[in-house]
């Protein structure tokens, strides 16, 4: 069974870079992309045109997004019994202490800063794959799933 990854990212350049990096790291991944928080919630709740999308195994969430930003998405996710078990990895350019603290308070599963250098970004994506998508045991029957 392929691993379903939801990437919430508004910059097309970053989306493509992440796709390229995952292609190198693990070809069996299905990377779904939405570009803001409202779309992310619709995807996760299978609303509107997202009626038939799979439940993601992991969410990669950017913080600065149009309409509904990543912090709000994180808040909604962790208040929702059926969604809170999906590991949510913050993947953002912000390395501000305030953002880091706030995200962990909102129960993000981990916080990663996007490295500036391409090599470092690729190796970060590889470690996300090696850890979250390979080593980590995820629940098979999510509550209310």
């Amino acid at each position: 069974m392929p691993t379903e990854v939801l990437l919430v990212e508004d910059s097309p350049g970053d989306v493509r870079l992440t796709q390229e990096a995952f292609r190198d790291a693990n070809r069996s991944i299905h990377l779904h992309v939405v570009s803001d928080g409202v779309e992310a919630m619709a995807f996760l709740r299978r609303e509107g045109s997202y009626g038939h999308v799979p439940r993601p195994d992991i969410i990669l969430l950017d913080l600065n997004l149009p309409r509904m930003d990543g912090r709000e998405v994180l808040g909604h996710l962790k208040e929702d019994d059926s969604l809170k078990t999906i590991p949510t990895v913050i993947l953002t350019t912000s390395d501000s202490e305030a953002d880091i603290v706030q995200c962990y308070q909102l129960q993000a599963n981990c916080y990663l800063s996007k490295p500036v250098q391409l090599d470092a970004f690729e190796s970060l994506v590889k470690s996300i794959n090696d850890f979250w998508l390979t080593k980590v045991k995820l629940p098979q029957q999510p509550r209310g799933g």
């Binding site: 350049g13 970053d14 870079l17 390229e20 996007k114 500036v116 250098q117 391409l118 090599d119 970004f121």
Partner: peptide, 10 residues
């Protein structure tokens, strides 16, 4: 700039 740098490197 990260975009410029990453894509020129790519």
């Amino acid at each position: 700039l990260r975009m410029v740098a990453s894509y020129t490197q790519l």
